[in-house]
Design a binder for these strands. Structure first.
Length: 639
DNA sequence: CTTAGGG
DNA sequence: CCCTAAG
């Protein structure tokens, strides 16, 4: 808030306003210098949160996934890099300290770790290479981890849970019966964890390794990457977010290929997510036709088909399309004997898309089930874990994208589709779409804002002009969420410089979010809290009045910049609203006024300024805007 | 993103 | 304060 010299006008002569109001397009926007957020701290916070959780989880959990490590693994380097299970405090001060955290009790490790290593040595005759059994296993395995932890909640939430993977083209129609005897089923998933009926049986023996970089949490190399940043606009909240840094890669063993990441819809950043979560989200839910919410009674049955439910609107055409083919799975075995050229694909890693966790200040620490991790007392590990869990537990649908287009025909061969052993695999991508529509709800209990269901896209291309745009954007001060389109820097894993890689890319599924609310009315209060009320102080009013006197009533942004630049909790809309109320207050009888009394003098100023600008506005009507103020000529007569 | 208004 | 239509 900035208090400036009072401007007297109207009675004692008005001073020509500073900036004539011109076309907005012409007026410069002023400096959008938002301080670069301290992403490192946040990253660490996230790490800490996760780490704490993981550490706890790891306690008492066996660690051997070898039993299931039958999948062919190629490119699996550094996987042991993060074998350690401790988080070193020293990292706090390091700018690029990479630590690993092992997570036990979750199957992520084996699955995620292997996921990137999915090598299609065998020829897959079906286009759905990605849906090969390997992937299915991996994903399915992974996806269902920790269901036990949220089981109780699952039971309360209608929704569908798709098995982590589907085999042989079967549709992934796992679902959750919301009845009393609700069960989680994963149809079509004949791999491990096929039966989700007893959800709580999914206890991974394999620790999940997380490589953490203080700057960004990274599930590196066959890992899921999590990065975080802080949104300056929501400093009142604790958030754990992911930044769109592209460092996930899926590799294709094919030399000569180059990697590029493409992120068709990365634009869906915090802001948008927030928007969805805060308003549209709830309203949209009722519109869904493929879901039935019946948490209130009667049948309570819910069924939703990802393919149907995902179609429809707004975001993610890619996603939607992808879902269309996600349920098909190539018959890995059948193609095994083929002697055709093989297309080798390796998914080295992929990152978890948006992890958006927002916790209001008013939330008590206890309610968050705070972890005992010293670093981040206010971020509850559980919250973070649930966020992750919610994203993956429901399973993933895999879609194939070729040159940004969804490959819909599952029956065509890879060759026919254009994915051949000889050609450069151009922009071959995969989409990992969370198949669980009920994932988010689990978080709602303690996370006030749900993370959007993510879609992981694995893109492959031979483009060589990879440009790490992330860096620039990050330094751009503020618009971290706007990182889009730019190719993500390719990580070739050093040892395989020529290998192609699929880059995991995030995307958001709006539809998925829309499906979440079981009971909109209830959820809303839980998830989207109103900002805490913050009555304007007299000094703030003074600053506001002063600014408005100078700038007028139609330039709230400028008013904000001028007088409340450093008060993030006061948006220009707030200022506008306050002015509105001030005018109203000044208009009504003193007896009717409430709240902290505003000095009469100020109210008088409000009144006069309001009157002046209103008049000015009317005067301007039809006149040149470049000469809005002619007051000097015709001094507004005194009173 | 901003404005302008209604809720 | 929130939500939205408009620009």
């Amino acid at each position: 808030m900035v208090l400036k010299k009072k401007v007297n006008y109207g009675f004692s002569g008005y001073r020509v306003p500073v900036i004539p109001r011109g076309p907005r397009s012409v007026r410069r926007r002023g400096s959008h210098k938002k301080t670069v957020e301290d992403s490192q701290i946040c990253a660490f916070e996230l790490l800490a949160a996760v780490a704490g959780k993981l550490l706890l989880e790891s306690e008492g959990s066996a660690s051997s996934d070898a039993a299931e490590g039958n999948e062919p693994v190629i490119h699996r380097k550094q996987e042991q890099h993060g074998a350690g299970r401790t988080l070193r405090p020293e990292c706090l001060d390091q700018g690029s300290c990479i630590e690993s955290v092992s997570i036990a009790g979750q199957n992520l490790k084996s699955t995620l770790r292997d996921l990137p290593c999915v090598a299609c040595d065998t020829v897959l005759e079906s286009p759905s290479i990605l849906s090969s059994s390997h992937l299915s296993k991996i994903v399915g395995h992974d996806v269902n981890f920790e269901i036990s932890e949220i089981q109780s909640e699952v039971e309360e939430l209608p929704g569908k849970v798709v098995g982590g993977s589907c085999n042989h083209g079967e549709s992934c129609d796992g679902y959750v019966d919301n009845g009393i005897g609700r069960q989680l089923k994963a149809e079509g998933n004949h791999n491990r964890n096929t039966d989700l009926t007893t959800a709580n049986t999914f206890i991974s023996k394999d620790p999940m390794e997380i490589y953490v970089n203080t700057h960004q949490l990274t599930y590196y190399n066959s890992s899921v990457q999590l990065t975080s940043h802080r949104d300056s606009r929501h400093r009142n909240n604790v958030k754990v977010g992911r930044r769109d840094d592209g460092e996930n890669h899926v590799g294709c063993s094919r030399p000569s290929s180059k990697i590029r990441a493409f992120r068709p819809q990365t634009r869906i950043g915090h802001r948008r997510i927030r928007k969805l979560l805060t308003s549209n989200f709830w309203k949209a839910a009722p519109k869904l036709k493929n879901y039935e919410f019946s948490n209130t009674g009667n049948s309570e049955s819910i069924s939703n088909s990802p393919e149907k439910g995902m179609k429809g609107d707004k975001i993610g055409s890619t996603v939607n399309k992808a879902s269309g083919i996600s349920s098909s799975v190539a018959d890995h075995q059948a193609s095994f004997q083929s002697r055709e050229s093989h297309v080798k694909l390796i998914i080295k890693s992929f990152k978890v898309p948006e992890l958006y966790i927002e916790v209001p200040e008013s939330t008590t620490v206890g309610s968050l089930n705070v972890c005992n991790f010293p670093v981040l007392p206010y971020v509850c590990q559980r919250t973070v874990m649930e966020a992750v869990t919610a994203i993956l537990q429901g399973g993933l649908h895999v879609g194939v994208l070729l040159r940004w287009k969804t490959v819909k025909d599952d029956n065509r061969t890879l060759l026919q589709t254009g994915i051949s052993h000889n050609e450069n695999l151009e922009m071959l991508g995969f989409t990992f779409e969370p198949s669980s529509a009920i994932a988010s709800p689990f978080l709602s209990r303690e996370i006030l804002q749900l993370p959007a269901s993510p879609i992981l896209e694995l893109g492959l291309s031979n483009a060589s002009c990879d440009t790490p745009s992330v860096t620039n954007a990050d330094n751009n001060g503020g618009s971290n969420h706007e990182l889009t389109l730019s190719p993500v820097d390719v990580l070739t894993d050093g040892t395989a410089p020529d290998s192609r890689a699929l880059v995991a890319l995030p995307a958001m599924s709006v539809e998925a979010l829309a499906v979440v609310p079981v009971n909109p009315k209830t959820r809303r209060s839980e998830l989207v809290q109103r900002r805490t009320r913050r009555p304007f102080s007299v000094s703030e009013v003074e600053a506001l009045v002063e600014a408005v006197e100078t700038l007028g009533t139609g330039r709230w942004r400028d008013v904000k910049m001028r007088a409340f630049e450093n008060e993030d909790h006061r948006t220009y809309v707030d200022l506008k609203d306050k002015w509105k109320t001030l005018v109203h207050t000044a208009t009504i009888a003193p007896q009717q006024r409430r709240g902290e009394p505003v000095p009469l003098e100020l109210l008088d100023q409000v009144l006069s300024a309001h009157g002046y600008w209103s008049q000015q506005q009317s005067k301007l009507h039809g006149k040149h805007q470049t000469k809005p103020l002619k007051i000097s000529d015709a001094h507004v007569g005194g009173v």
